[in-house]
Design a protein around this nucleic acid. Structure first.
Length: 336
DNA sequence: GCTATTTGACCAAA
DNA sequence: TTTGGTCAAATAGC
């Protein structure tokens, strides 16, 4: 007998945690293996190197498999026997760039939910225009935060609408709304703030659900088959205004693990056509700081880009603090 | 000229 | 009163 959704989530949570813990453990092992291997290469001694690499590969597979399983559990796919093996994931991630263990650590990915109440905030339309700055400070909008060592793409088009110095905060907070706020009445917003300098940690707080159909994400992911390390644009916050005017529309390119969606998805052609048809503004779709990176063709080879985190938000239950997408995003920054 | 970003002002919640 | 979130005019970039 199938559990109801909340029960299912709760029962899976333990397994999710196990998977994540295992993944972290394996990642630590992998780091040691890589470090050993690196030192071996540096010293010019080839003995045993091959075995280390083989071991590393195995760990990579296990790690990726662990995260993939986590994703599938979160998406309720496990029961369908769709757990992805490490090998499968490796196939998708192979060729992705060099190992750069210094740039990322699983411990730096922190996702937490702060509030899962129903979104209620509705400004009075009659007063909206006349009252500059008027708003209802959000209390009931569900939100969740995400700490990352770099600014990463979340697959949606954002427009910066404000920046504010925060009390006791070294760095200003940047405010973004969904590009489709007006053309599609999408109420999603996010705040991004650098909370640590060294190593840099950026906290992104998301509010509200995306009700827009942002086809960019799909097209972007389809097009991207280059190394995420190469194509990702990690922009530091330090001098956002002067040095990185691009910041507000930053996104990085990432890979995603295949997770089938229950709902039908538009075809790629449709995606692109819709994208162009919905020409709210060209800049809204400027998601890659390296547009040429998309030039490189690459077969999808099983990759799909059907995950829309915000489409899942309604599925995230209180107590289970992650949305599938964010795990996905972080996991996929795990490059080896 | 159009669009995105910046930034000071405004307002409500704490 | 302070602080944080948003608006919208001004500005910049294409």
């Amino acid at each position: 007998m199938a559990l109801s959704w909340p029960e299912s989530v709760l029962s899976n949570r333990e397994r999710v945690m196990e998977e994540l813990i295992q993944g972290r453990e394996l990642a630590s092992q992998l780091r040691r293996v890589l470090d050993d291997h690196k030192s071996t290469l540096v010293s010019g001694c080839g003995g045993g190197g091959g075995r280390d690499v083989g071991s590393a590969e195995g760990l990579v597979n296990k790690i990726l498999g662990s995260f993939a399983n986590t994703l599938l559990i979160l998406n309720g796919k496990e029961a369908d026997g769709e757990i992805v093996s490490g090998d499968q994931i490796q196939g998708n991630s192979s060729g992705g760039g060099s190992a750069d263990s210094s740039s990322w650590d699983a411990n730096h990915a922190i996702i937490k939910s702060e509030d899962f109440h129903e979104e209620i905030s509705c400004k009075s339309a009659s007063t909206l225009k006349d009252r500059r700055g008027s708003y209802k400070r959000r209390k009931t909008t569900h939100s969740w935060t995400r700490d990352t060592p770099a600014l990463t793409d979340d697959g949606h088009a954002w427009r910066k609408y404000g920046q504010k110095a925060i009390h006791n905060a070294k760095h200003p907070r940047n405010y973004f709304r969904c590009t489709h706020k007006f053309d599609q009445s999408c109420q999603a917003t996010k705040h991004v703030q650098q909370i640590l300098d060294d190593p840099p940690v950026f906290r992104t707080t998301y509010y509200g659900n995306h009700t827009c159909r942002d086809y960019l994400k799909a097209s972007e992911l389809i097009l991207d088959c280059t190394s995420p390390r190469e194509s990702s644009s990690f922009i530091r916050f330090g001098d956002i205004k002067q040095d990185h005017p691009f910041f507000s529309s930053f996104t990085s390119v990432k890979k995603e693990v295949v997770i089938k969606e229950e709902k039908p998805q538009p075809s790629d052609d449709h995606v692109m056509a819709s994208h162009h048809h919905n020409h709210s503004s060209s800049g809204d779709y400027n998601v890659s700081p390296h547009p040429t990176a998309f030039k490189s063709s690459c077969p999808l080879s099983g990759l799909s880009s059907t995950i829309d985190p915000y489409d899942h938000e309604g599925d995230v239950m209180s107590g289970l603090i992650v949305g599938p997408y964010y795990f996905d995003d972080e996991v996929l920054q795990y490059e080896f």
